[in-house]
């Protein structure tokens, strides 16, 4: 489903390369975890996939279901099925959470040539999904993420994911700032979305989240490259030995 080939990326202002030849293929139905130390390029990869400004791709390609993602605007990527659960979800005063979600859903549907979802149908859809993530009516009525706690923001991200039903879900350090209970809640929300037609890219520092969201494949990223790929046991190895051993190995 997702194919990243020899991806080189640098910051738009500056020559500093951040990704230095990333290769990654994720099939539909799979969950891939990307682990790595700070500054390894994990978050940059998530931004480049979702189309954030500020990065220049100097080499390589990214396709989703055969379509060239790099040529699309962020909203077109979303309509094509890309979803990024932000590490730091943005607060948007003055835009109601419900209004925002319905606008987003209908914009995607319009882009795909589908009919808009009526207000009544949307409300029903929302109610079902919100219940599972313990997102109360109060959170739905408030402006997007304004006054939400860290846990509420992350639950709101997963709620959006559940409503928008993307093909490729990218979770950028979704576990950061979550206590154990909140993490379980978020993981349950993610697991409920696991499906033969959907792929996940879970970016995390710690193995902890992967106890709850079981990956099929684990990649270790360092200095802008994927240096190791393995099964879930690779995450456990990191948990026990840290990244130090792996990095040294790479250098050798």
């Amino acid at each position: 489903m997702l194919d990243i080939k020899n991806l080189h990326v640098r910051l738009e202002d500056g020559d500093k390369p951040i990704l230095k030849g990333v290769n990654l293929s994720v099939n539909a139905g799979e969950v891939h975890a990307i682990m790595g130390p700070n500054g390894s390029g994990k978050s940059t990869a998530s931004y480049v996939l979702s189309g954030r400004d500020g990065y220049t791709v100097t080499e390589g390609s990214v396709t989703l279901g055969g379509e060239n993602l790099l040529e699309m605007e962020p909203d077109e990527r979303a309509a094509a099925g890309v979803f990024l659960a932000f590490q730091y979800p943005v607060e948007i005063p003055g835009v109601g959470n419900m209004t925002f979600l319905r606008t987003a859903l209908n914009a995607q549907r319009r882009a795909r040539g589908q009919d808009a979802v009526s207000a009544a149908d949307f409300l029903r859809l929302m109610r079902d999904k919100a219940k599972m993530l313990e997102v109360g009516p109060d959170m739905l009525k408030r402006p997007v993420n304004v006054g939400f706690s860290g846990g509420e923001k992350k639950r709101n991200e997963i709620l959006q994911m559940a409503i928008l039903e993307p093909k490729l879900c990218i979770l950028d350090e979704t576990d950061s700032g979550l206590d154990v209970d909140a993490m379980k809640l978020v993981a349950n929300g993610v697991n409920a979305l696991r499906d033969a037609g959907r792929a996940f890219l879970v970016i995390t520092h710690y193995q902890r989240l992967l106890n709850h969201i079981k990956p099929d494949v684990v990649h270790i990223m360092a200095d802008g490259r994927i240096i190791r790929t393995g099964g879930p046991e690779l995450a456990l190895e990191v948990e026990h030995n840290g990244y130090g051993g792996l990095l040294t190995e790479d250098a050798g």
Binding site: D75, A78, L84, I92, F100
Partner: peptide
Amino acid sequence: DEDALFYLCSRGVPRADA
């Protein structure tokens, strides 16, 4: 706010609408 703009766009809202 460019961050807010990107957030909205990343959910599928075209830039001008956002």
